[in-house]
Nucleic acid binder design. Structure first.
Lengths: 213, 213
DNA sequence: TCACTTCCCTAACAAGTGTTTGGTAGGTTA
DNA sequence: TAACCTACCAAACACTTGTTAGGGAAGTGA
């Protein structure tokens, strides 16, 4: 991080006297997210983002106060929407199997809508969550694990899921199978998010081996 | 890439008149791989690598001629070993199901031995393979897909695997479930690579849902 | 017309980047 | 002893990085 930060004047937090339009911000964040996802956060220079947006590097700072802020907004906006969906599912009082099905389906829908943000999250969250500013990533991950692991345990107790598997391994298995899809998924492909979810669930729940009838 | 490269003198490729020991190179590559895996290639400075190795940045250039060369050696060494294992499996003439089982088991063993290299590969291969120098990553990926997809198709034809699934989706499913494990796997954990492979195979082949007997 | 706001540009900055060059301590060989 | 080699250090280099300061063009409202 170059340039010396201005020592944080006491009662004068840096509040620029300008008011960028939220719509333009969203536009810029979307292109920034694409570049971040494609090249990786660290390999992405603000000049590349500016290029993709058709402007010069310095101009970005009219809308955002740092490159890190852009990343922050991208990730937190995504997580907020994600949890809106998840919380709705978890509050619906479904059985374990139905909850898993709903969570997986919801996840693929989020991948469809926030492909770039998901890809960034996957690549960078582990290193970012060490930073205090991105601690909410850890919080989210804990909540995430609680929701999925809890559902799996409920399922084992209800004899809906197999009891002979390491539950933690199962959790990671299900979680990863879903979210890595963001690395190859392209919206507008031949499968809709719901169709992908259906097939994934079929594989995860019943396996890919042919059952002797 | 800073500094102007010396214009590539015609008959004088840069061949230093020194002979670093291969053992020391391996040591340094191992620590470099750890740092790359932990921080990401781009976020890793040569000074960080040197720190981890207990020396100064410039000293690395006695052993390697660039940061990129280190990455190159790490990845190509890993892929060479990986394909040694895979080729042996593929040449064994096993049935489709047994081939998949052997490939998955072999993969987890590779993850156990080359955890850092696998993590780097996962994070960076997509962007790297665009560079001519790392084209072998694409080649490997093509060969990889051919081996796995071919085995799955054989299995469907032999009525060992389900025919009602999109085979391409299945391929990505199996591939991803295996390799993302590198992101959380730590050697010396409570499960051996073979045990993890066993449970993973059980999930992938038979599913996590409890079957009514 | 003037004042004001929004949005971008120009031009620079200081720190950090990968890399090179020349030197040197310590060991081995003759 | 001298010559040589290995493995590192010290110090710089050219360039890139995120960021800032000042300015200006175009539009809006009075």
């Amino acid at each position: 991080m170059p340039t010396n930060k201005p020592a944080a004047q006491p009662a004068a937090k840096k509040k620029p006297q300008v008011t960028p339009s939220p719509e333009r911000r969203r536009e810029l964040l979307d292109t920034a997210a694409e570049v971040f996802a494609a090249q990786g956060y660290n390999a992405t220079t603000v000049r590349k983002i500016a290029d993709a947006a058709g402007m010069l590097a310095g101009s970005l700072y009219y809308h955002f106060d740092s490159k890190e802020s852009m990343l922050d907004e991208i990730l937190s906006a995504f997580l907020t929407e994600l949890w809106d969906g998840y919380d709705a599912v978890l509050a619906a009082g479904l059985g374990p199997r139905e909850t898993i099905e709903a969570l997986v389906t919801e996840s693929f829908r989020e991948i469809d809508r926030h492909r770039a943000a998901v890809a960034i999250y996957q690549k960078e969250s582990r290193t970012l969550s060490a930073q205090p500013r991105f601690h909410y990533l850890s919080d989210s991950q804990v909540k995430f694990e609680k929701a999925w692991l809890g559902t799996l345990e409920r399922g084992v107790a209800a004899q809906v899921f197999r009891a002979d598997l390491d539950i933690r391994l199962t959790y990671r298995f299900v979680r990863d199978t879903v979210w890595v899809a963001a690395s190859w998924y392209r919206p507008g492909g031949q499968h809709s998010p719901d169709e992908i979810a259906r097939q994934y669930l079929s594989m995860v729940l019943d396996g890919i081996a042919l059952r002797p009838t």
